[in-house]
């Protein structure tokens, strides 16, 4: 019995070496690589990441280009006086579409006597650079926030000791003639996240058509549903 078992041992032990060689060969040639789901990088157009103000302002004192000549406002307006009727004939200012609440005439903001600047309600003439004082007349709360650095954007430095604190002015974002342009706060979003092995976004799209149990939100969604449809 003992000899039988030891010969069995022998036979089995002989197989170990070749079996390992087989395993080695399989690992070397057959062992496949690992699939890592890759996604070709689609670089975002850097122009869409511009930190420039959204509006280009026309300088102080402002200039306008007519027939290839840079002109100051007063170059013309010393000659052409603006009157109550001027809105009918806007001459060089065809593109201006004035939709700014109760301000329906140029002279409500511009100083008709000296068009290089603006006019406050108390008849003070101010330069274009101080436009925020003009805005502050009707928007004091926002202006207060802007002064404190709460409203609007600050480019450059947060620390005045180390560099320029470039606080963007009112009209570097808002169009003074038409502050509520549809395009003011509407943008095409940049691509959403696409992390490794993310799979299909789970709650995506469901947000606007959920099974809503909360009565408050249900009502809110009922009201907004048509708008959302239109939007998508």
């Amino acid at each position: 019995m003992q000899s039988a078992s030891s010969s069995k041992v022998g036979a089995a032990a002989w197989l170990v070496g070749p079996a390992f060689f087989g395993l080695a060969a399989w690992l070397w040639f057959g062992g496949g690589g690992v699939e890592i789901p890759r996604r070709p990088d689609v670089p975002v157009d850097l122009r869409r990441l511009s930190t420039a103000p959204r509006r280009v302002t026309i300088g102080d004192p402002p200039t306008i280009r007519i027939n290839n000549y840079e002109r100051h406002c007063n170059d013309c307006h010393q000659v052409f006086e603006i009157s109550e009727e001027q809105r009918a004939n806007r001459m060089q200012h065809q593109h201006v579409e004035l939709q700014h609440g109760i301000n329906v005439q140029c002279r409500h903001c511009h100083d008709a006597r000296d068009m290089n600047g603006l006019l406050l309600r108390d008849e003070t003439h101010i330069a274009f650079a101080e436009v925020d004082r003009l805005c502050a007349q009707c928007h004091p709360k926002v202006h207060e926030d802007w002064v404190l650095g709460i409203h609007g954007r600050i480019n450059g430095h947060w620390d005045p000791a180390q560099g320029e604190v470039r606080k963007l002015g009112c009209i570097e974002c808002h169009d003074p003639h038409r502050p509520r342009t549809p395009a003011m706060d509407r943008l095409a979003p940049l691509p959403g996240p696409h992390t490794l092995r993310m799979g299909e976004p789970a709650v995506h799209g469901e947000l606007h058509h959920p099974e809503e149990r909360d009565p408050l939100r249900r009502a809110a969604q009922g009201l907004g549903a048509s708008k959302a449809e239109e939007h998508r």
Binding site: V9, A11, A12, L15, V16, A19, L23, L27
Partner: peptide
């Protein structure tokens, strides 16, 4: 390293899986 054929089979299988 000493055992019967069952021992060798068992140990080989474990070693092989460990190597994988």
């Amino acid at each position: 390293f000493v055992g019967d054929w069952r021992y060798y089979t068992w140990m080989f299988a474990l070693t092989a899986i460990a190597l994988l």
